[in-house]
Design a protein around this nucleic acid. Structure first.
Lengths: 199, 199
DNA sequence: TATTTATTCGAGTAGTCAATCTAATAATTT
DNA sequence: AAATTATTAGATTGACTACTCGAATAAATA
């Protein structure tokens, strides 16, 4: 008999996911047909539905991919000697991602879909909880070293930093004058004033 | 002959717009069919398309309605003696709107659609420019009275306040622990530290 | 009252949708 | 080589789409 090669299988799925990301960023989840994804991936619908049972499952896979990427990023972050600089560095990365229109479109699309589809909503909420937990841990540690004002509750602070992240993607959508690479100083000012201990 | 009564005509359009808002908030622009809007509005498709030439035109009308509402709100704001308090007050209103899931869903949906549809994108960008101009004027005036740090460029400051507004709606979508009415103090702290002059 | 025209209805149109089915091919194991 | 099964294609399905059409009704003017 023949067995499924997990690596090839995963690689083929990735082709579909990447094609879907490109399409979804352009036209949204409900604006793109499975036929379009097939064309972008260079395969037949029969084949596409061999790897994913439904269109919805493709969306799910994209959200899961997002989760792994952010988790991986935070894994490296905690050993930094200057934790506040690490936080600013992370936010710089976010600003960099926002400069990519594909990433931004997708982020907004996922947020909008989270409000409509219960299942996607749960996945996205879990992702967000993970992000906030990492931010919160970072703030707590920095607070212990006197780098962040102890008056800021780590969880509440993380919540508003997450809001600022969301806001950055929102700017991309509606404000053509918002150029991520030029906004770094103002973002640093905002974060520093919000978080740093008063002299 | 008989002439079209503009008031009745407008009222009838409003029925459709309201129905569409309810549907769009639930399932998104591309997730709701015109038949669903008809059902929600209690009318036939023939009738609905008598008032709007396309589904797209209904979306346009919603964005326009949004514009008028924010413009109206700012018209009252400028005579306040305490301009910084006026700004905080406006942000409290935003937080109140965010507590309404219909309004939040729609805000996210519109932002996502702005990235896909060029026409909607332009309308939304114009709305946003108007909002930022109002915020910027407020900051400038408050800066003149010494209520806001003169080091903050009004336009840049307005841009990041707009980002925080976007972020609030983002939180609603992905963070079930974000309760608008409990987040007021932290939002005030964030804005105060960001904007107020150092002692 | 007669005429004009705005408003309303709902069946109908051409086309698109996600997903399925059948069948052929390719790769792996025995 | 034979058997098994993963992979692929592409035509097909029936439900659904935005929107139109022709006809009927209702209201307002002359």
């Amino acid at each position: 008999m023949r067995k499924v090669d997990p690596e090839k299988h995963a690689a083929r799925r990735q082709v579909i996911v990447d094609a879907a990301i490109a399409c979804f960023a352009r036209k949204g989840f409900h604006g793109t047909s499975t036929a379009e994804i097939c064309a972008e991936a260079g395969m037949s619908p029969g084949n596409l539905f061999h790897y994913f049972p439904t269109k919805h499952a493709i969306i799910t896979a994209i959200v899961e991919e997002e989760r792994q990427e952010t988790a991986e990023f935070f894994r490296e972050l905690h050993e930094s000697p200057d934790l506040f600089a690490a936080l600013l560095g992370f936010m710089d990365v976010v600003l960099g991602l926002a400069a990519d229109p594909v990433y931004s479109s997708l982020a907004l699309e996922i947020a909008a879909e989270a409000m409509r589809d219960e299942h996607i909503g749960e996945l996205v909420a879990a992702n967000d909880a993970e992000l906030r937990a990492a931010l919160s841990a970072l703030i707590k540690a920095a607070s212990g070293r006197g780098q962040i004002d102890a008056a800021i509750d780590p969880e509440a602070g993380a919540r508003w930093i997450a809001a600022i992240i969301d806001g950055i993607f929102g700017r991309i959508a509606v404000d053509p004058g918002f150029k991520p690479d030029q906004e770094r100083p103002m973002m640093h000012l905002l974060l520093t004033r919000f978080l740093c201990p008063k002299p």
